[in-house]
Nucleic acid binder design. Structure first.
Length: 358
DNA sequence: CATACGTGGCG
DNA sequence: TCGCCAAGTAT
């Protein structure tokens, strides 16, 4: 009853392939549960390439749960700024506090981990297996796609039944001797070989037992909406004391609550000059076409009133602000704040930069 | 169970 | 200028 057809071959083939092809990623070089936990949260719905730009810097500042628990939320968000899904950062912060309030030990089991805010079925299984060796099968988007293809799928199967079948198949195939490697191998296979479109079946280690060799129906996508808007980059004082006007989103906003951004201005208002910058920014299913106008302190008086907090922020402080990704992007493009040189500590605004370039 | 939640890159 | 994604969770 233990192993159905082909299970041993599946495990052997997959693990051998993973041994040869695993990408060298920072969170694969550690056995520290905290480091693995942080990586799993950052990787939720987020590309590896994007996480790499944040992970090391975050871990240097918050090397353990205690460090994060002691930090202010604003600083946590500042280190997450641009990564998206900020609720993840808030929940991770809450979870760290929760752990420190209960003795400081990270739970070692799926059941225990599942209690933590921000840790769902996938993440609990990932941490339990990778950090603690529990034989729990992970099912993320990659694994789901791999298994649907591997098992085959009938037209009339209900989605609930399919989910169950995927979970069961993942558990059946899981190598109980090496759950950490097996789970990561499954995800790696989905991420690098069993691609959503154009799967690389010829190089697939489990091709032989695969029912479909790559067929996969994808759900029709939702329509994108478009919206035009404009931001004002209001500035005052000369370099290096330059300040820009920022506005804080309401604490109860559904989107990016409590984070700071440039003040929005009337998109239609006749601006004398062309925008200093135009960018597209898509959030969920809305494409924002954003124009940014550079304005002076005088003109800030023409701003519409708001309940929100507005403050003049020194350019050199921007790195420490929990900015929205869009405002961060704009401030970097306009060289009001420096970009990152990849992973590493935050660096201060360089003194060599003479003045704002527009 | 559907929906909201962010972002940057690519064709 | 536009569609689609990528290691999910909470409600």
């Amino acid at each position: 009853m233990e192993s159905g057809p082909g299970v041993d071959e599946f495990r052997r083939g997959l693990l051998a392939w993973y041994g040869e092809n695993a990408r060298d990623l920072p969170w694969r070089r550690t056995a520290d549960p905290w480091a693995i936990w942080v990586s799993e949260i950052m990787l939720q719905q987020t590309r590896v390439a994007a996480v790499l730009e944040y992970y090391t810097r975050f871990m240097e500042r918050f090397p353990n749960a205690a460090a994060l628990a002691e930090a202010d939320e604003a600083e946590v968000l500042a280190h997450w700024s641009g990564l998206g899904y900020y609720r993840r950062a808030r929940m991770l912060h809450q979870a760290a506090k929760q752990i420190m309030a209960h003795g400081g030990q990270i739970p070692r089991t799926v059941t225990g981990l599942r209690e933590l805010p921000g840790v769902g079925e996938y993440t609990a299984a990932a941490i339990a297996s990778i950090a603690f060796g529990e034989a729990a099968a992970v099912v993320d988007g990659n694994v789901e796609r791999v298994l649907i293809r591997y098992m085959g799928q009938s037209e009339e199967e209900e989605s609930r039944a399919l989910k169950t079948r995927i979970q069961e198949e993942a558990a059946r195939l899981l190598d109980p001797e090496r759950p950490a490697d097996f789970n990561q191998a499954m995800m790696e296979l989905g991420a690098t070989m069993c691609l959503p479109r154009g799967p690389l079946c010829l190089g697939c280690p489990v091709q032989e037992g695969c029912a479909t060799r790559g067929e996969h129906v994808t759900a029709p996508a939702k329509k994108m909406r478009s919206r035009e808007m404009a931001y004002g980059l209001f500035r005052r004082k000369a370099w290096p004391k330059t300040e820009v006007l920022l506005e804080q989103r309401p604490a109860d906003a559904s989107l990016m609550a409590g984070m700071w951004e440039l003040p929005e201005i009337e998109a239609k208002t006749a601006q004398e000059d062309a925008p200093a910058l135009t960018v597209r920014h898509s959030i969920t299913n809305t494409n924002y076409y954003v124009s940014v106008f550079v304005l002076n302190a005088q003109q800030s008086r023409e701003l519409a009133g708001t309940e929100n907090t507005r403050e003049w922020i020194a350019a050199r402080m921007l790195m420490e602000m929990p900015l929205t990704g869009l405002s961060r992007k704009i401030l970097k493009r306009l060289k009001v704040m420096p970009g990152y040189d990849g992973p590493g500590p935050l660096h201060a605004l360089e003194e060599s930069t003479d003045r704002i370039v527009l």
